[in-house]
Design a protein around this nucleic acid. Structure first.
Lengths: 141, 141, 141, 141
DNA sequence: GTGGTCTAGACCACA
DNA sequence: GTGGTCTAGACCACA
């Protein structure tokens, strides 16, 4: 499936699940009306305690992103697509902002930071490699 | 002084202090031989429990960045500048990598991400605004 | 269990725990993959504050000897056996060196010191009594 | 002079001074009636805070090893030689006992320990080298 | 004044 | 149940 949990990135596991569900909805790999994997199934798939999954689902419910269909499971609410698209950007922007602030505060300058971003992106998205590493931050005269 | 603690960014307070001390050394606002602010003083300044400060200082000691001058305080070790320069880049690169992975995994593409980075940098470093927003991440037609 | 804390020997309690865990691993009474006693359990067993135990466990983690299994506890890492065997020898040799230096500096000669060592060993390991006193240090009649 | 302070051996500095004075008396490099170096002089010599020296001298007084001669300084008491000879053995034996206990508790056996002792002594007393490393401690008649 | 150690006890994420 | 983090406050050695 589309989940990938990182135990050591400072974000709580349940929070990572919340986000990844929202992201899946945002990129429409999960559509309105569609059922989420059951707590039990996801718990097995991710090798994570069911309580943790349940907690994530609970938050998604209270965020109004999914709803309980009794006897059937949890389904993506109408309107979730737009909400999640927006949430996704905010979540990423917030995390980025936090790191960028730390970097600037620590004395790195904007160029240096953007160069690190390019390098990391190049590693993570090999195909974008050339694009990311040739022009990116250098103006062409 | 140069500390700025954010209680809600997922990074433990003592860890934020560790990093900020390393960053201060990296940018030479704290130099070899210089004393750190005392546990008590920093605790007052940041309104944080002295034990938390002490824990940060202890980790800095075991990282070989500062050393105890008995009865006088904790001073930056020789060699700390190079170590901290390197640590700083690693710390930032790791955090960035983690966010970038999340963003890509969530369906944002490299351009979109770089655009967010530019925007955030522009907000955080108003003066660099133009530089950051002109060429950086746009391909040349 | 295998812990024995001495509050008045100049070695901090958390440090004694660190060493005794390493020693237990070195003599394989604690094996790779095995869980340590929980912070709370050991705290009760030794009548020592849980924070002190936690501090010891934290140092063992940063020494790469044990690792966190989230929600389950702390387990001995692979490779810990060799590391602890080596640490054990170093720890003991360093402490011995320090006492021997003091003894020599204080005017005792090597023979006198070795005689004290023999006597102490004989008292501490009654069964090894004869062994300790026959060949190692006694002349053959 | 005869002092040698080791800041990192777990024994408090004032306690090291107490012991080294007793040892000096035991080996008669300091004799009954002789004056100790003044607090100020010793403080300079050892680059240690006068308060620490004063504290050591205070303990030596309360141990009945030295006495105040008003206007002249602190002098070795009569009877101090025997007391210090005995103290010296006890102090060393106690520290040794503590290390040996730790070593045995940690799974090293008596032979291994004695071998470490021999090695350390050989390093510390180069001249005793051969004696110490071949036949343990006694010459064969 | 300096840091180091320890106790006591709270709250959190996770199993 | 597990450990991690943090607060509050005590006492010690050393300057």
């Amino acid at each position: 499936m589309f989940f990938s949990i990182d135990t050591n990135n400072g974000v709580a596991i349940y929070e990572q699940i919340v986000r990844q569900v929202k992201f899946a909805i945002a990129e429409e790999s999960l559509r309105v009306g569609q059922l989420l994997p059951s707590v039990r199934a996801l718990s097995v798939e991710l090798a994570i305690n069911p309580n943790t999954i349940a907690r994530a689902y609970q938050q998604l419910q209270s965020d109004g992103v999914i709803e309980l269909l009794r006897g059937r499971g949890l389904a993506v609410c109408t309107g979730a697509l737009e909400a999640c698209r927006s949430d996704r950007r905010t979540i990423i922007a917030d995390r980025l902002r936090s790191v960028l602030k730390e970097a600037l505060h620590g004395g790195l300058d904007a160029y240096e930071i953007q160069s690190i971003v390019r390098n990391q992106l190049a590693e993570l998205v090999p195909t974008i490699n050339t694009v990311a590493s040739n022009s990116p931050t250098q103006p062409i005269s």
